[in-house]
Amino acid sequence: MSIPAWILAIFAAVMLLAAEVSAGQLVVARAWTRDGGADIAVYQLLMGIAMAGILLPGLSILPNAVWEVVFAVMTAWFVWRLCRGRGAAAVAHGQCAPHLVRSAAILYVFAALAGPSAAGSGMSMSGPGGMSGMAGGSSGGVPTLHAPTLALIFALLMVAFTVHDLDRRADVDGYFHVAGHRFMPGESTLAAATAGPVTPRQPAHAYTVKRLLVSPAVVKGFRVATGLTMAFILITMI
């Protein structure tokens, strides 16, 4: 007996939903027009797809080696962002550090998977009847990671970030840089900045979708779901 496949499928579905939201933020809310928004939206999109692929092998679209390269680049990107001029401030306000740690964590998962299938495509977490997405060899049909202490440390960090994200106001640290946008009373600064000015010609439904995609609740929900799923993957593969 191992972890039921339907539990993994639920987590994978949540991650796919998160990836869809990120794609929506990129396209509908035009994240690339916001300072500091596009890279994080892209990273979240990739994160959602990769994690869904870890949980269910059928959803894996790239070989592990490619994912390793992708997240190595993302991790390096966030390191570079931290080291830039306003890096210290970003660290102090917790804007970039969580993304860096999450990116490093998933890079670690791809790099540290044990088992013969680690070099192949799809994830290596599935044993017979176990984590459907994970093929590897260990007790209970669930694969294990090399350096499990590191997995535990990453899992504890994921839990800490999840608790922190839940506790704080969602729009204090949004995905989009809000400077230079006018304040809209009654709305979060994040939503106000991203939605931009409303013109009479703008379709009402498009405006609603935009606001929904970048609303504080969705942003917070995305972070919590991602952090929790990553912690789940790490803990269950220790």
Partner: peptide, 14 residues
């Protein structure tokens, strides 16, 4: 949260 995640480990399903 950590407790809940640990409870999902494969051993708990045996």
């Amino acid at each position: 949260l950590l407790d809940g995640l640990l409870q999902y480990q494969w051993f708990m399903y045996t």
